[in-house]
Simulated assay, not measured.
Amino acid sequence: MIHVCGSWLSDAATQSVFDALTAQGHEVFVVGGCVRNALLGVPVSDVDMATNADPETVIALAKAAKLRAIPTGIEHGTITILSNGTPFEVTSYRRDVATDGRRATIAFAQSAEEDAHRRDFTMNALYADRHGQVRDFVGGLADVQARRLRFIDDPTDRIKEDYLRILRFFRFSAWYTDPQGGMDQEALAAIADNLDGLSALSKERVTHEFLKLLTAPNPSLAVATMQHVGVLQALLPGASAQSLPVLIDAQNQIGVQIDVIARLVSLGAAEPEAQLRLSKAQSKALALYDAQRGGSERPAVLGYRYGVEPSLQILCLRSAALETPLPALARQDVERGAEAVFPIKAADLMQDYSGPALGEALRRLERQWIASDFKMTREDLLRAE
């Protein structure tokens, strides 16, 4: 028997939910990502549960145990239970009655095995009881051990139930599979045959899934395979995966944070904002990176204008676009520029200038100061003026 363990399972908050839902003999398992991650040795964040109790019974059992029950997705059979302040999504066993590629009409099922067969990938359909004993109905254990991603049963059927699973396939591949093992050819063939379904998905869902893919430590293989089967072009016309691995190498070399917008810009898509739903902050970063990746401002000047992290991302993007090494002292120069403070204030020039002329004088002196590599003092600049 295979078991999982960890504080996420043994914690009193988790066990209290088990206590509540099994009080009248119902079946309850933890399921999905928490079991997968525990088996892979990856940190567990969210703990989801599945049960043969219907949603109304779940609510009643939670209340009887003095736990708060929130009907966050009751139409889909999901109730969120708060235990010691921790949320647990509890979903009644389900089976799909009808699907349209975006959403499903569901009916409640009686067994975990039936519930497993409506999920997406074998590694996401592993169940464990309160003691950690794993139940596998679809061959997920062998796939987890091989770090291999496969659709459950027929890939085409799973994709047509929800076309977002095409993107999820590449996201989970980037995060959890062995790149040396390659990707499941049956899955890729089904994906290539169902590209038209991507157009039915909302921009919000596509953006959420695609950006999560780009947050993987190294999504290069997944994105290159997306391009190979036509997914990347269907999502982002004009995009290419060619520069992404070069960008990631540069980012790793200089020690910057993972920046999904920099990675998105490296793909070179035509008007990505027309295809994705970005936040204001993301759109601002995209505009900056796109404008500056072909620029020539020195690292110190970038640091002065944009700060350390954005400037380093810009330098990585330039390195990837031109396939040239990063400047030798890139980080030191960027940090030096970020620390530089223009020594002239408007009050220093008010005796001689006002209005627009004052602003132009300040900008002129700032240009001189930058051209001096930030070395000119206040006195130097005032004498020059």
Rank of each mutant, 00 (worst) to 15 (best):
M1P: 09
H3A: 11
V4I: 15
C5D: 15
G6F: 09
A12G: 03
A13T: 08
L21M: 05
Q24N: 13
E27N: 02
F29P: 03
V31Y: 13
A38Q: 00
L39Y: 02
V42K: 01
V44Q: 00
D46C: 08
M49Y: 02
A53H: 01
V58K: 01
L61N: 01
K63V: 13
A65P: 01
A65W: 00
A65H: 10
K66H: 14
A69F: 04
P71C: 06
I74S: 04
H76I: 12
I79Y: 01
F88S: 03
T91M: 14
T91P: 03
S92R: 00
R95I: 14
R102D: 10
A104F: 12
A107H: 06
A109N: 05
S111V: 07
S111K: 07
E113L: 03
A116M: 09
T122L: 07
M123V: 13
N124Y: 08
N124Q: 07
A125Y: 10
R130W: 11
R130L: 08
H131V: 12
V134F: 09
F137R: 03
F137D: 05
D143C: 02
R150L: 05
D153K: 04
D153F: 06
P155I: 11
P155R: 04
D157A: 15
F170V: 06
F172W: 11
A174E: 03
W175G: 04
Y176Q: 06
G181C: 00
G182M: 07
M183V: 01
D184G: 05
Q185E: 14
A189D: 12
A190V: 11
E204D: 15
T207K: 00
E209Y: 03
L213H: 04
A216Q: 10
N218D: 15
P219N: 07
P219S: 10
L221K: 07
H228L: 13
L232F: 01
L232A: 00
L236S: 02
P237I: 09
G238Y: 09
L244H: 07
I248K: 02
Q251F: 11
N252D: 14
Q253K: 14
Q257V: 14
S266W: 09
L267P: 05
L276C: 09
R277M: 15
A281E: 15
A281P: 02
S283F: 02
A285I: 05
A287Q: 14
L288Y: 08
S296H: 13
R305P: 08
S311Y: 06
S311F: 11
I314D: 05
L315Y: 06
C316P: 06
A330C: 12
D333W: 08
V334Q: 00
I344D: 05
M350C: 13
Q351L: 14
Q351V: 10
A357H: 08
E360T: 10
R363K: 14
E366Y: 00
Q368K: 08
A371Q: 13
D373C: 09
E379I: 08
E379R: 03
E379H: 06
E379S: 12
L381W: 03
E385I: 03
